[in-house]
């Protein structure tokens, strides 16, 4: 090896050492850039050392070139690694000051009224079974609300519903059943409709508000039986209140159905045991059952009033109070809260 070559290579090695010895001196990305220029810039130390390359013997040039390349790469790698360290430190500092617990820019949260939530849920279950929506007026005439439903004037059943009157023959509908009549007058069987809406009674106390919501269901066809009614309501109850809910049919009386039944479900609070926390359950009053709806087979007189032949068709009807179900479902104790519309109440429902 020629001396010239030897000293060239030594110069390169000392350059590398020089750079290594500068470790830790560049504390910022700017200082590091200066360092990079000092060694690798166009007029940097490496470039200066390379000036001696031309003076070497041609036979030494390949070895010298190779070495120079190695040194350039090792210095570059060294400075890159320092830059990576500096970058990591910078971003670590930035992250340590990033506060994910500051409040988000959250839009107002709206809500649906619990009556709407339950109404939609019930309607969804029933439309899923094939029922279609029907609608009718809230101010009804006596015929649709009472007479066509087999409730003649003077009938004691009129006492079952305290009525708000507009005039002698016009009432605020006391139930959604009037919509059944309108649907049947419009259409021949088969017929499967649900009629949700507001209803009104002349009643106001802890457990009654003068306005509340009902959903009425009606199915008319050939050979509809009480077993069909039980099946429909069992499916409905279990979808709304859970698959383990027990359903009980108790004979009752409604003028527009015969036979008629009231439907109780196993108490949602105590699970039908009648007691919770060792005390008599306040929801079911210890009976283990809560009443949720009324139903029955459509009375032949109702069919006659809309011109259906009761010898050909049978059907079932049921009606349920939405607030009652919402109270059970959400654990709302006071019926009047539904219509006070306190936003702190409303905001609790999605």
């Amino acid at each position: 090896m020629s001396n010239e070559l030897k000293s060239f290579l030594e110069g390169l090695d000392s350059l590398a050492h020089d750079c290594e010895s500068r470790k830790g001196q560049a504390c910022s990305l700017n200082e590091l850039d200066e360092l990079r220029i000092e060694f690798l810039g166009r007029k940097g130390k490496l470039a200066q050392s390379m000036g001696a390359l031309g003076k070497l013997d041609n036979t030494d040039k390949p070895a010298a070139g190779k070495k120079a390349n190695e040194i350039k790469q090792s210095i570059t790698a060294l400075i890159d690694s320092w830059q990576a360290e500096l970058n990591a430190a910078e971003s670590g500092k930035a992250m340590s000051q990033f506060d994910p617990t500051m409040p988000g820019r959250k839009p107002w949260a709206g809500s649906l009224h619990p009556v709407t939530l339950v109404m939609d849920e019930v309607c969804d279950v029933l439309t899923g079974l094939g029922f279609e929506h029907a609608a009718g007026p809230e101010v009804e005439n006596d015929w649709h609300n009472f007479e066509a439903l087999n409730i003649p004037p003077e009938h004691p059943a009129r006492d079952m519903q305290d009525t708000l009157y507009v005039s002698e023959k016009i009432v605020l509908r006391t139930h959604t059943s009037g919509m059944q009549i309108r649907s049947m007058l419009k259409q021949e069987p088969p017929l499967a409709v649900i009629a949700p809406g507001k209803v009104y009674r002349r009643d106001s106390d802890l457990t009654h508000t003068p306005m509340f919501h009902q959903i009425e269901g009606l199915l008319v066809d050939k050979n509809v039986s009480m077993g069909d009614l039980r099946g429909t309501l069992t499916v409905f109850v279990r979808q709304v209140f859970g698959p383990k809910t027990e359903v009980r049919f108790r004979p009752s009386f409604f003028p527009f159905t015969e036979p008629s039944a009231e439907v109780d479900i196993s108490c949602v609070m105590c699970g039908g045991k009648g007691t919770s926390d060792g005390k008599t359950c306040r929801i079911c009053k210890g009976t283990g059952w809560v009443e949720i709806l009324g139903c029955g087979m459509v009375d032949p007189n109702v069919f006659k009033s809309v011109g259906y032949d009761p010898e050909v068709y049978t059907g079932f009807a049921f009606g349920l109070g939405i607030e009652r179900i919402a109270m059970l479902k959400y654990g709302i104790g006071d019926l009047r809260m539904f219509f006070e519309n306190d936003v702190r109440f409303l905001e609790q429902f999605a």
């Binding site: 079974l129 088969p190 039980r230 099946g231 429909t232 049919f249 015969e258 036979p259």
Partner: peptide
């Protein structure tokens, strides 16, 4: 139909087997 109700009532409306109706349209 009132007699039907008596049969159902005494037998027990709660004992009637539940089935799902076929909803024709």
């Amino acid at each position: 139909v009132d007699l039907y109700e008596e049969v159902g009532r005494v037998f027990g409306l709660d004992q009637i087997p539940a089935v799902l109706p076929k909803v024709s349209k």
